[in-house]
């Protein structure tokens, strides 16, 4: 064949020509390396986070015993005889996250079912961007809204409610997370093949039956993953709880009183109470480490669920 004979010579011509262009060659060699360096920086960021937290946490545990950190039920770092038990902060974090989930999961899932199964294309295309606005509002704005609007409104209903409480930031955080649950769950439900719905419709199922008994089970792994990711988001959320949740550690499950979360503690301490090099200073890293471990575990769990239990059609 002609082309087979010619190919090497053309390639050689191209190579000859390319080797004449020193600049092109240099770019060809250096560019991949530059991009590789960029990619490595993202890995270094993770290393940076882990090492930073690890070193400062180790310093903290050289001053406070790890047993006290894990088992003590008191968190009073500013006392003259300080207590460093992480439990009240964990309690506050998970209580507020739970309140948020009570709002976000049912509403978000209902929105997802409506958008994916009931809404027309036009309605879906209108509502989704508006919901994204809700997700794009800075968290400090939600914090402001919780403190200056939701808390006074709730105080009118619940007389014993303190100005700084767990309920108000929990509810507002739930509203903030609705779009996240809705959009991730909707993605999972939209990925269910149309043929499955049509099969069920042909068997005489109503739209509700198709949604709940065909689409929902088929998309379940994605939906559960969206819940887990949302919980992780709620645990890591900072400004709403810092502004509206107050600065006293939880004293039990009383959501009408102040409950400090891990994130709020980190921010409030860095606002000025903690001098560099003090035990209190290192305690924010120990709390940060705990926070990092929980959110990382949640994110890995979400990835595992959506990979392991995915239904392939």
């Amino acid at each position: 064949m002609m082309s087979d004979n010619e190919r090497p010579s053309i390639r050689k011509m191209i190579e000859d020509k390319a080797s004449q262009k020193g600049a092109t060659n240099a770019a060809e060699k250096t560019m991949p390396k530059l991009f590789l360096i960029c990619a490595i920086i993202s890995i270094l960021t993770t290393f940076g986070i882990v090492l930073t937290l690890l070193f400062e946490t180790i310093t903290f545990f050289s001053e406070v015993s790890i047993v006290e950190f894990l088992t003590s039920s008191q968190w009073y770092p500013m006392f003259s005889d300080p207590d460093y038990g992480i439990r009240p902060l964990l309690l506050g974090t998970f209580t507020i996250a739970a309140i948020a989930m009570v709002v976000a999961i049912p509403v978000g899932l209902a929105v997802a079912i409506y958008l994916s199964e009931y809404a027309s294309d036009k309605i879906r295309r209108t509502i989704k961007p508006i919901l994204e606005v809700l997700a794009g509002i800075p968290t400090i704005v939600y914090g402001f809204f919780a403190l200056t609007f939701v808390t006074p409104v709730l105080q009118a209903v619940i007389p014993g409610l303190a100005i700084y409480n767990a309920l108000s930031p929990g509810l507002v955080m739930g509203i903030m997370i609705i779009p996240m649950v809705a959009s991730l769950s909707e993605d999972a439900m939209s990925a269910v093949p149309q043929s499955m719905r049509e099969g069920a419709f042909a068997l005489g199922a109503t739209r509700l039956e198709v949604s709940l008994r065909v689409v929902f089970p088929a998309a379940l792994s994605g939906i559960i993953a969206s819940f887990v990711l949302s919980i992780s988001r709620a645990i890591g959320e900072t400004m709403i709880v810092t502004v509206a949740g107050g600065g006293s550690p939880a004293q039990g499950l009383d959501i009408t009183s102040s409950m400090q979360t891990m994130t709020a503690y980190i921010v409030q301490m860095s606002l000025g109470d903690a001098g560099f090099g003090t035990t209190v200073y290192y305690s924010i890293y120990a709390v940060g480490m705990t926070l990092f471990i929980f959110t990382l575990a949640m994110n890995l769990l979400a990835q595992f669920i959506s990979k392991r239990f995915r239904e392939e059609y």
């Binding site: 990619a39 993202s42 960021t45 986070i49 930073t52 890591g236 994130t263 940060g288 990092f292 959110t295």
Partner: peptide
């Protein structure tokens, strides 16, 4: 694969933890 997994996990790290990194690495 490591870089890709790393990036999706970084996206889930709370912003306040990035603040701790910035405080230690860049500020100090």
């Amino acid at each position: 694969a490591l870089i890709q997994t790393n990036i999706s996990n970084l996206a889930g790290v709370p912003s306040v933890v990035f603040g701790l990194l910035g405080l230690t690495l860049f500020v100090r």
